[in-house]
Simulated scan of single mutants.
Amino acid sequence: MSDIEHLKYPIGNFQKPEVITATHLTGWIETIQNFPENVSQLLADATKETWSKTYRPEGWTILQLVHHCADSHMNAFIRFKLALTEESPKIKPYHEDRWALLPDVTSVDAQVSINLLKSLHARWVVLLRSLHSDDLAHEYIHPEHGKRFNLAEAVGMYDWHCRHHLEHMKIALKS
């Protein structure tokens, strides 16, 4: 793996287990639960200069990463609710790279999204912990990937997403 690839995917790509167990799900949900507080603690002493640090050349700034996580996790929460209430809904993808350039990302204080993540994850975790195996089998269709994702797999992907971007923030802080 090249240095740039390592910086882009510092924890590697998401690897779906062959069989998703209750132990996987419990750990993944714990990651999702703890993510907002982990971000908050990591960035508690951030200075004005901190927010513009990047984790790799041409990568997002810490400010963009925080707002991206809020955007992504809001979309995830909605996707879960759609999958639980509709028959295999086709979700709407979005252009993350374009969203990262909008004024609500580039000029709004990161604490706004950290607070949003705290509230959003509080609700999301309640929903996730309430799911039974038949609920976790519900799925949504992602048209960009051309595949169906069941909710058990999606929990794992968002565990990965939390750890992936937290690591990006840690790398950026060291830059």
Results as ranks from 00 to 15, higher is better:
62 I>M: 08
74 M>F: 13
124 W>M: 07
53 K>T: 01
96 E>Q: 13
119 S>M: 14
78 I>R: 15
65 L>N: 13
95 H>D: 15
46 A>C: 11
84 L>E: 02
122 A>L: 13
98 R>T: 01
85 T>N: 11
55 Y>V: 02
71 D>V: 03
65 L>G: 06
100 A>C: 04
39 V>A: 12
77 F>K: 03
121 H>N: 14
39 V>P: 03
63 L>R: 15
53 K>W: 02
88 S>V: 11
116 L>F: 14
86 E>K: 14
54 T>N: 09
49 E>G: 07
73 H>D: 14
71 D>P: 09
65 L>V: 15
44 A>W: 01
92 K>Y: 08
92 K>F: 08
88 S>T: 13
45 D>P: 08
101 L>A: 05
110 A>R: 04
74 M>T: 14
101 L>T: 07
77 F>R: 06
63 L>M: 12
77 F>E: 00
38 N>W: 13
117 L>D: 02
96 E>N: 07
120 L>I: 10
45 D>F: 11
66 V>H: 02
66 V>R: 07
125 V>F: 00
118 K>M: 14
120 L>S: 05
117 L>Y: 06
95 H>T: 04
67 H>I: 10
54 T>E: 10
119 S>A: 14
122 A>V: 01
78 I>W: 11
87 E>A: 02
76 A>Y: 12
38 N>L: 13
103 P>R: 10
103 P>Q: 03
67 H>A: 13
97 D>H: 05
64 Q>P: 09
102 L>S: 08
118 K>C: 12
49 E>R: 05
56 R>A: 08
50 T>D: 03
76 A>H: 05
119 S>W: 07
81 K>Q: 15
77 F>C: 04
72 S>V: 14
67 H>S: 12
93 P>Y: 04
47 T>W: 03
49 E>I: 05
79 R>T: 05
104 D>V: 09
77 F>Q: 05
92 K>H: 10
47 T>R: 14
102 L>V: 05
52 S>N: 09
80 F>Q: 05
48 K>W: 07
71 D>H: 01
55 Y>A: 01
97 D>F: 01
92 K>V: 09
103 P>L: 10
97 D>E: 11
60 W>K: 04
60 W>P: 11
83 A>N: 06
117 L>F: 11
45 D>T: 15
113 S>F: 04
55 Y>P: 02
41 Q>G: 03
89 P>I: 00
54 T>Y: 01
92 K>L: 12
100 A>P: 02
115 N>P: 07
97 D>M: 07
37 E>H: 10
93 P>C: 03
116 L>Y: 13
67 H>V: 10
39 V>Q: 07
106 T>N: 06
96 E>W: 00
